[in-house]
Structure formats: C-alpha cells, structure tokens
Amino acid sequence: MLNALQVFTTVVVGVMVGVEFSVAFVINRILDALPGDSGQLGRAHGGRMLGAVMPVWYISSLVLVAVWAVAGWGDQGAGFVVTSGALLIVSVLMSVLLLVPINNRSKTWTAENRPADWKQQGDRWDRYHYVRVAVIIGAFAFLVAALV
C-alpha cells in the first residue's frame, strides 16, 4: 500500500510541476507574443481557470506528501519526503502571500479596466512564479530521491 501511495504522490506532484513549468516557460511566452490585448486577455482567462484548480492541487500534493511521510516514517528516504513537504509548504506560502493577490487582480482585467502598471504586475507575478517553479521542482526531486 505504501508503494502505491509513493507512486501516486510522485505522479501527482510531478504533473503539477509540469503544468507550472509549462505556464512559466511555454504558455506565458506564447501569450506574450500575441498581438494587441490578446496576451493579457489570455493570461486573465488562464488566471481564472488555473486559479480555480491549482489551490486544490497544491494542497492535495502537500497532504499526500504528509501522509507518505507519516506512513513511511523510519524508512530510508523519509528525510527526503519531509524535505519535499517543507518545500511544498514554502510553495503554498509563496502562492498565498505573493502570487494569488496579483492573480486575483489580473484575472478580472480587460483592455478597458486594467491598471496602468498591469505589465509590471504581470512581470512581478512571472518572477515569483519562476521561484515557485524552482521550489516545486526541488520538492519533486526530493520525492524521486526518496524512491531510490
């Protein structure tokens, strides 16, 4: 049963990392290259869509890692699982304190109501997101290390 939990948790966290990596390095670059207001409108839509899904995914990932840490306490690799959980806590705190406030504003923006500094706010979100992606990649790497 523990093996199934380990594999399931690693896959859930790994797919989350893939989505967030894709947002940072693929989707946002595509949206930024679109003409006119299309990119900003696409980011607003993405903020609404992913803003509804990602909190559940982050918290579920953290819960799965916590269950793994408890169930596998004393096993070789338990320290890696705990470290992964700590990094996921950092990513959740970053999300709530830094990224969500910007996302909550930007997901309502249109060409008519966006603030003058909308690009700067988007750039700030991107910088925070790059750091968060690095943190969750680390969390994922520690889970993989715990498996071997």
Score class of each variant (00 low, 15 high):
Ile136Thr: 14
Val26Glu: 12
Ala24His: 06
Leu62Lys: 04
Ala141Asp: 10
Val96Ser: 06
Asn103Lys: 11
Phe25His: 08
Gly74Phe: 07
Gly42His: 01
Gly42Leu: 00
Leu31Asp: 09
Tyr130Pro: 05
Gly77Ile: 12
Thr110Pro: 00
Trp118Ile: 11
Val135Asn: 07
Trp125Asn: 05
Asn28Met: 04
Ile30Leu: 13
Val90Thr: 13
Ile136Pro: 04
Arg105Trp: 04
Val26Lys: 06
Val13Asn: 00
Lys119Trp: 05
Arg114Ser: 03
Val15Trp: 09
Lys119Tyr: 03
Met49Tyr: 11
Gln121Ala: 13
Asp75His: 15
Gly18Ala: 07
Gly138Tyr: 00
Arg43Trp: 03
Val131His: 01
Ala66Gly: 10
Arg132Ala: 00
Arg127Gln: 13
Ser60Tyr: 04
Ala33Trp: 01
Leu62Val: 01
Ala86Gly: 15
Asn28Lys: 08
Val17Cys: 11
Ala52Asn: 02
Ala24Phe: 02
Leu98Gln: 15
Thr108His: 14
Ser60Arg: 10
Val70Asp: 03
Phe25Gln: 11
Gly138Leu: 03
Val12Ser: 06
Ala134Gly: 13
Gly47Asp: 08
Leu97Glu: 09
Ala66Tyr: 00
Phe25Gly: 14
Met49Phe: 14
Val133Tyr: 03
Pro55Leu: 02
Gly47Ser: 08
Val131Cys: 11
Asn103Trp: 02
Glu112Ser: 10
Ser22Gly: 15
Val81Ser: 01
Asp75Ala: 15
Gly72Cys: 06
Asp117Gln: 06
Ala139Glu: 00
Val92Leu: 14
Gly79Pro: 10
Val13Met: 11
Ala44Pro: 00
Ala69Glu: 01
Ser84Pro: 07
Arg48Lys: 15
Val26Pro: 03
Arg127Lys: 12
Val81Asn: 06
Ala86Leu: 15
Trp57Phe: 10
Phe8Cys: 11
Val56Lys: 07
Val90Ile: 11
Arg29Ala: 08
Lys107Trp: 00
Ala24Lys: 00
Val19Phe: 00
Ala71Ser: 15
Asp37Glu: 12
Ala69Asp: 07
Gly138Gln: 03
Tyr128Asp: 07
Val81Tyr: 01
Val15His: 02
Gln121Ile: 14
Leu87Ala: 08
Pro101Met: 06
Leu87Pro: 07
Ser22Lys: 04
Ala139Lys: 06
Ser91Tyr: 06
Ala71Glu: 12
Ile136Cys: 04
Trp118Met: 12
Met94Tyr: 04
Ser91Arg: 09
Met94Asn: 14
Val17Thr: 13
Arg132His: 04
Asp123Pro: 01
Ala139Phe: 10
Phe21Gly: 07
Gln40Thr: 15
Ile59Asp: 00
Met16Thr: 15
Lys107Pro: 00
Thr10Lys: 00
Ser61Cys: 09
Ala116Cys: 06
Thr9Lys: 02
Met16Lys: 10
Ala111Cys: 04
Pro35Tyr: 00
Gly138Ser: 05
Arg29Gln: 03
Asp126Gln: 14
Arg124Met: 05
Asp117Asn: 14
Val17Tyr: 02
